[in-house]
Structures are given as C-alpha cells and as structure tokens.
Write a protein that binds this DNA or RNA. Structure first.
Length: 109
DNA sequence: CGGTTGACTGTTT
DNA sequence: TAAACAGCCAACC
C-alpha cells in the first residue's frame, strides 16, 4: 500500500498516459481528454495525442482513443483507417466517416 | 531559459 | 455543416 501517485505510477507524462490507455476495456472508447484526466492531466488532451503518436510501435491500445465527439482526428489517414478496423474488431461500430457512438461507448472509469 | 509544436477541445464566424 | 480562432500544457531543440 502507500504506493505513490495512486495511479499509473509512471515517471513521464507519456508513461502515465499509456497506463491510462491500457486501462480502457475492450469494446469501449475514451477521448483524449478523458485519458488525460485518468492519467492525472485533465488539461493535456493535446499532449495525450502526442503520446499516442509516440506509441506507434508499442502494444498500446491507442485505437481505443478518439476525439471528444467520438470522431477520429488522426492526421494520418492510413493510421486512422487502422484504428477504425481495430475498433470494429473489438465490437465497436464505426461509421464510414470515422465516427463512433461515443455517447454509448464512452469508457467510464 | 525561451520559442516551437501537436493523434485536442470548445466557441465563434 | 465546415472552417477559423483561441486556450491549454508538457516535451523538444
């Protein structure tokens, strides 16, 4: 007990964000802001996206992270396409426009 | 130590 | 509805 931070227990911002993303259950999605809140940085939504960009090549379920409207805001179409594909594989319906029903599939920590 | 940057978000035009 | 603007914050050079 008495573990410091009481959360992701990381050192850098990215490690905490990664820890928060790993906590997202399958079949659910979380917004960048929500991940930031869980990570302990409620105002760093932008940086959460930055951390995700670094996550390329890591076992991180970054595909469960979408914008606050449930829309995919990734600038790389190839990467966004992969996210849609993974979300559908997890049981999350994604529209052709790259949008999910965030109101229904939002992760509630 | 300061300016730049971004897988964001919310408001306004 | 889409586009533009502004606020925010930590890592990077």
């Amino acid at each position: 007990m008495a573990k410091s931070t009481g959360g992701e227990g990381g050192s850098t911002f990215h490690e905490r964000v990664w820890g928060a993303v790993q906590r997202i259950p399958p079949g659910r999605v979380a917004s960048y802001k929500l991940v930031g809140i869980v990570a302990g940085y409620p105002r760093s939504a932008r940086f959460v996206g930055r951390a995700m960009a670094m996550s390329k090549g890591t076992p991180l379920p970054w595909h469960r992270v979408v914008a606050s409207d449930g829309r995919i805001v990734i600038r790389d179409p190839a990467l966004a396409k992969e996210q849609i594909r993974r979300l559908r594989a997890e049981g999350v319906p994604v529209s052709r426009e790259g949008r999910v029903d965030y109101a229904r599939f939002e992760w509630e920590p």
